[in-house]
Each structure stands twice: as C-alpha cells, then as structure tokens.
Design a protein around this nucleic acid. Structure first.
Lengths: 343, 343
DNA sequence: GCGCCATTTGCAAACGATTGCAAGATTCCT
DNA sequence: AGGAATCTTGCAATCGTTTGCAAATGGCGC
C-alpha cells in the first residue's frame, strides 16, 4: 500500500527449499530454524525467520505430518443413530463442539469434524482412524454404537468418547452420571408433589436409557407406579406432534414429566399450554442439560445441569494424556439440579 | 468372534507396499487398483481389493495428499470479533455448521474447523490457507475482518464467505439480503402500529449494520423518527442486563423493537415481561433468523427467516465451482417475513 | 512362427519437510 | 601454535502414495 513497500520480486516461496536458496543455506537448516531448535546459530535463525515472514512462508503441514507421523489434528466424530437427523440442531452437541474447538486450539491442535451414519457405513470409526489424517479421535455420543466403539477401543488407544459410563466397559468415556441425573430429576418431581411420572424421550440411546433408569429407581424406591416412557424423536418438527399425541393419550394419568432434554421440555411446555394444562400446577416438569433455553421458557425450566465446558476440557485432557502414553480412567461428572419454576 | 475366524497372521498392513508384497505386485499397481483406474487387470484388482478389505487397509491420506497436492479437506473458520465469546453459543452459526458438514460430506470432503480471534492473530486467514492442509476455505461471518478478507481474496480463489454483500466487493459471499430483511422487519413493526422504532444489537458486524440500515430506510421513507440503536453483546449473560438497562432508559419512548437476532429477541421478550410491558400490545417485537426458539417463545416471535440449509448448500456449491476453476458471483438470498404473534 | 497392437505391470522420481550422521567451522585451553 | 571440544551446517535417507515412462506380457492376424 505504502510507496516504499519493498515487495522484492514476489518470487513465490512455497517450499522450505525455496527459502533455503534465498537464505543461502540448506533446507535442513531452514527446517531447524523454523522449528526453533537450539542447534542453529542465532544470526542465521533470525535471518531465516525474517525471510520467512517477509515472504509469508509456512511449512506444508502435510509433508511435515507425513514425515513426523503426526498431524496435529484431532478428529471429532458425531455418529447419527437410527434417528438420522437426531442431533442436527441439538444445541447440546453443538455447544460441546464449540468448547472442544476452543480447548483443542489452546493445546495446539486442529479439529476435523465428521458426521457419520453408522447404519449406512458400518466402518465409520476405523475409516476415520485409519485415514492417517488424525492423531486421535473424540467420539461425541455413543448413539447405538456401543459395541463398535468397544471393539475399536481394544486396538486403538487415542480415543475418548462422550457418553454414558457402564460398569466394566473398555473405552474411555467422559460424561455426566445420567442415572444420578435421572434420580435428581425424579426426586424433584416427587418433592414438588408429583406421583404419576412419565419420561419423555427416546430410551434407545444409552444416555437417555440411563436417565430413564434413574427415574425408575426413584419411583420404585418411593413405591410409586412405574415411570411411563413416552417415546419421541428429537427433531422439533416431529417431536411436537408426538408430544401432543402422548399428552392427549395420558390426559389425567400423569402429573410429572421428566424430559430427556431441555429442548424436548420446552416443546412439551408449549404443548401443555396448548392443551390448557398449567405448569407446575397441573403437571410438574423437569428437563435435562440446562441449555440457555431453560432460562427463557415461561415459566423458567427446572432442569438437571451438565457442565459442558468441564466436559469438553475433560475430553481433551484425557485424550492428550492418552496420546502421551498414559492409561486413563473414565471421567464421570456429577449432574446438578437447577430449580426454577416448573417443578 | 466366530471360531473359524481366519485371522491369518495379523501382519499389520500399514502401507501400500506391504499390501503389494502380499499380493505379489508392485506398489504402483496397488495404488492404481485401489484408485479404481482402468489400467489394471480386473483379476489383479479384485485380488488386491480383497486383501485390502481383509487387512482393513486404508491408504494414508497425508501421503496421498502430499503427492496429489490436494487434501480432500475444506477448512471452515469462524472469526470471533471484538466480542470474543460472541458466537460460542450462537445457534445460528452452529446450525449452519451442521448443514455445512453434511453438505461437504456428501461431496466427499472432510471439514476442518477452526475458530480464531483475529485481534490476537492478525494472520489468521493466511495461516489457515497456507497450512497446506486444506483445499479451500469457508469463512463463517465477516466479523470485523472485511478488509482482511478482501485482501486475501485477491490472491486466493478457493474461498467463499458467509456474510453480507456490499456493492463492488471482491470476495465471493453467500448470505441473506440483510438490508431487505431489515426493511421487512421495520415494515412489519410499522404495519402493526409502531412508530418509534429501536434496533437491538451491536451494529458493528456488517450483517447487523445492514439490518439496521434497512430499518432506517423504512423509518426515513415513512417520515418516522430515526431508529434508535440499542447496543448489546450477543452472549446471553451480558445481553440480559444490557437489555434491561436499555428498556429502562427508553421507557415510553419506543413502541417497536427490531432485534438483530432471535436469541436477542427472546431475551428481550423476557425483559419486557419482567418490566411489566406486554407484547405486542405495549411494544411490538420482530426478530431475525427464525431459529427454533422463535416458535417457542410466548407469544411466538415474529421474525425474518434466513434459510440456513439453502445457505450451506450455496456455500459448498460455490466453493466447489471455484475449486473447479469457475469464477462465481456472490449469492444473495431473499429473507422472508414470518408473522407470528409479537408484531 | 513372426511382428504389431493393446493391455498390464514395474521402475523410479516426485510431493515437502524432518533428522541421524558426519563434516566443517569456531572456540578455547594448554 | 596445536589439538581437543563445541557449535553449526550440509548431506541424504525417509515418511507413504502417485504417476510418467518404459518394459513385459499376451493376443491377434497373416
């Protein structure tokens, strides 16, 4: 821009060899200089760095990765179970992803994102791992692929999974204690006066199944009737009508609902209102996750909080440890009841 | 699992050369066979494919990428402007990201995600492009980096940006006609009876500035007082109190609010209620985006819709075209007014 | 049986950066 | 000044795959 801009013969400097030629040294020296190794003379290093800056040179990561046998990239994969569109707008996973990106970046890693449909590609995990493009993988959600993940875990160490922990499993997992979370939710419903409970959501995925089980625990312990399972999909469009159907069918038979997700809870709240039921007077409601939406519903949603930032940090921390050769235990995070106004 | 499982000497087959040795051919032939080139005999190809499958062999993408000078990876970068945590939970960007992932996958590309803070790393875009890891880049949101992006666009073709289009710009952009969107919103407010309008949100980012300008257009055309700008951050925690402050300060001076985002609108709705103002009676409100939350507020939010799926498809389509050497025009999508109950 | 095509294959040189080894340049000590 | 010890540097092999070129194989017609 300025007139005195010394764009000396913009000979594109693409490789380390080009730069070496300019600096009058060998490629090896340039490599060492840029890598900040102590073996290279301070003056030559500075000269090389200056040239590199001037020409906007950056070493090719592919070549570097190939030679060093590590890429500096962590794969993040989201398996989409039978309910294909399941997570597409699930803000929980998306928020987790955001935190993961930050966390990985601060540790100098890049993030390669892949969404896969295991049903149509049984090989999804091996394919990703075997691609040679990633140093390790974080699986977001076990979906219905628990077994597949277990198998892979036997032969591949650089993997950590977000999901539910079950006794004796072989893969390293980070996640909330869903069963405990389910208990907290149910206990709150009961404390608020509910006796005939229902669980709203698909009980297929492990996390949800555990939440449901937690609620059952409470019902059994308290001598209440078994918790009714009201199955729904997760995508808002389909969920709405399914919820409406369930509510109509259960009219008067339930007085407390534990929704698998805040998103479902919010939808449910709208349906309840539409059917003329008031919350928490007629029906108590508790959600799960404590997403931002939980504060914004009317009335504000009581829910069970998962700390997403802590979860992301845990995932990255464990993965890096494993990359460094440590063997790591799974990390189970405590859920926390957040009382607002719906129960 | 089955007893007859023929795990013949699990000699790990990691390279194409290993596989070649097993098949009794040269590495070159294996490469061609796996790439499905027509030059290789059908029988040898089948034999090689069978062996590859049996040993779960996958060619190393790094090496392949290095040699072919293309990686099969598209970079997606989210610049975080001055308001650092800006988009962390912004469901608009996250949803767009989800669609992008799907769209890229169906075209055989992987997605490398990077969030950057331009203020602390002025080199963010060149660094990403120069890394050699990606074949092209999609920038999500211009943030306050319009100029930087323009400069890069002059020397790098494989880039498409989500954001606002301004006359004569040099980078290829996909985005909603924000100014028109702003007009639609303001017109709706006026049609609903509002006369003293306010715009809620930061007018720094280009998209928002354009939306604000659109509202100004309407006010001017209608001979109304200028639209008041009520600046806020985007993160829900800070926004809430800022909104409360603005509302208190403007009490009685405004009767129509155009929020830069549905998220802000939802927050605003809660604050209005808290301050005893009813919507749409006392104050009309229109949002922007038509996120899922817009249907769930009470009353449901009138808003201006952006079609995220179409946007994602456009981004990918244009980028692939550019990778193929075409020169492409920017794509400006029409916003659409969605009337619900707040205006 | 021979020569000429058309197929298949192998060879070896890339792609760009890293690194063990050894040679060259300095420094330092006696 | 001589020699050892220490710094710097260059050389060349290597990571695993792709691909132009040439060699080998086979098929065919005459």
């Amino acid at each position: 821009m300025a007139a005195g801009d010394d764009r000396t013969a913009r000979t594109s400097v693409r490789t380390i060899t080009d730069l070496a030629r300019l600096a009058g040294v060998s490629p090896g020296t340039v490599s060492r200089a840029l890598a900040g190794k102590s073996l290279v003379n301070t003056r030559t290093r500075e000269k090389i760095e200056a040239l590199a800056r001037e020409h906007g040179f950056r070493p090719n990561q592919m070549a570097s990765g190939l030679r060093r046998q590590k890429t500096g990239v962590i794969g993040v994969v989201i398996p989409l179970g039978h309910d294909i569109r399941q997570q597409i707008s699930d803000s929980f996973f998306m928020t987790l992803l955001g935190f993961l990106a930050d966390e990985l970046t601060t540790h100098g890693y890049d993030l390669m994102l892949r969404r896969v449909v295991p049903d149509s590609d049984p090989d999804w995990l091996d394919r990703f791992i075997g691609s040679g493009m990633i140093d390790g993988v974080i699986v977001i959600g076990q979906s219905d692929q628990f077994e597949r993940i277990e198998e892979v875990a036997d032969g591949y160490r650089a993997m950590v999974v977000w999901g539910n922990h079950t006794e004796g499993q072989r893969h390293c997992v980070v996640g909330t204690d869903n069963r405990l979370g389910g208990r907290l939710a149910a206990e709150r419903l009961v404390a608020a006066g509910a006796r005939r409970l229902a669980f709203l959501g698909d009980t297929g995925p492990m996390e949800f199944a555990a939440r449901f089980a937690g609620a059952q625990d409470v019902a059994a312990r308290m001598g209440l009737p078994a918790v009714r399972a009201l199955a729904t999909h997760l995508s808002p469009d389909r969920a709405s009508e399914e919820i409406a159907g369930h509510l109509a069918a259960c009219a008067g038979a339930i007085d407390g609902i534990f929704a698998a997700t805040d998103t479902l809870a919010a939808l449910c709240l709208a349906e309840l209102r539409a059917q003329g039921l008031s919350v928490p007077e007629d029906i108590k409601l508790v959600g799960f996750d404590d997403l931002p939406i939980a504060r914004q519903t009317i009335p504000p949603l009581s829910t069970v909080r998962q700390d997403i930032a802590v979860g992301a940090r845990g995932l990255v921390d464990l993965l890096l440890r494993r990359l460094a050769g440590e063997t790591t235990e799974s990390l189970v995070l405590p859920p926390e009841l957040v009382m607002r106004a719906t129960a």
